[in-house]
Computed example of a mutant assay.
Amino acid sequence: MEDLPIIQKTYDFIAWYAPILSRLPKTHKFTLGDRMLNRLYHILEGLITARYAKQKITILESLNTELDILRYQTRLLLDLHLIPIYRYEYAGKFINDIGTDLGGWLKQQKQR
């Protein structure tokens, strides 16, 4: 069985972002960094769970909120000068792509 594109994008995003978050200074690594990494894992787990769930809408709406929180946390990394602008832009593109796919999946489920 093939992965849904949103699951693969989220997996790829974690593979790219995890090393960056693990290199944050100690003052942020064990707070903001850990929260972000746990949120990413939670989003991936939620997407996989939603794939097999009969009632997907509640799960997907919750993940949409989680993704928005991640968006703000990423912006906070930039504002605190913890990541350069090019990494912020790349992360933002990933988050937006995942968000677009998630929004499409939600819309499709609501039309059923």
Results as ranks from 00 to 15, higher is better:
Tyr88Ile: 03
Asp3Gln: 15
Tyr88Thr: 04
Ile20Lys: 11
Leu40Pro: 00
Tyr72Arg: 03
Ala50Glu: 04
Gln55Asn: 11
Gln55Ile: 04
Tyr41Ala: 03
Ile59Trp: 00
Thr100His: 10
Arg87Gln: 15
Ala15Pro: 03
Gln8Met: 10
Leu77Met: 12
Ile85Met: 08
Gln109His: 10
Trp16Met: 10
Ile20Asn: 04
Gly92Val: 06
Ile98Leu: 06
Asp101Trp: 02
Arg87Leu: 15
Tyr17Lys: 07
Ile83Cys: 06
Phe94Arg: 14
Pro84Met: 07
Asp79Gly: 01
Asn64Tyr: 08
Tyr86Val: 06
Tyr11Asp: 13
Thr31Pro: 05
Gly33Met: 10
Arg35Asp: 12
Pro19Asn: 08
Glu66Gln: 13
Ile6Thr: 04
Leu21Trp: 10
Thr58Gln: 11
Lys107Ile: 02
Lys9Ser: 13
Gln109Met: 11
Arg75Met: 12
Leu4Val: 05
Ile57Asp: 07
Ala15Asn: 11
Ile59His: 00
Arg51Phe: 11
Ala50Leu: 07
Arg35Leu: 09
Ser22Pro: 00
His42Met: 06
Gly33Ala: 09
Tyr88Glu: 12
Leu24Asp: 07
Phe13Met: 15
Arg75Val: 03
Lys29Asn: 15
Leu77Pro: 03
Glu61Lys: 06
Glu45Ser: 11
Tyr72Thr: 01
Ile83Asp: 05
Met36Tyr: 06
Ile20Cys: 06
Arg35Glu: 11
Leu67Ala: 10
Gly104Ile: 06
Ile83Trp: 04
Ala18Gln: 15
Lys54Glu: 11
Pro25Gln: 05
Tyr17Ser: 14
Arg51Pro: 00
Met1Phe: 13
Ile20Asp: 04
Ile85Pro: 00
Thr49Glu: 02
Asn96Lys: 08
Trp105Val: 07
Arg35Thr: 07
Tyr52Cys: 02
Tyr52Lys: 02
Tyr86Met: 01
Ile69Arg: 00
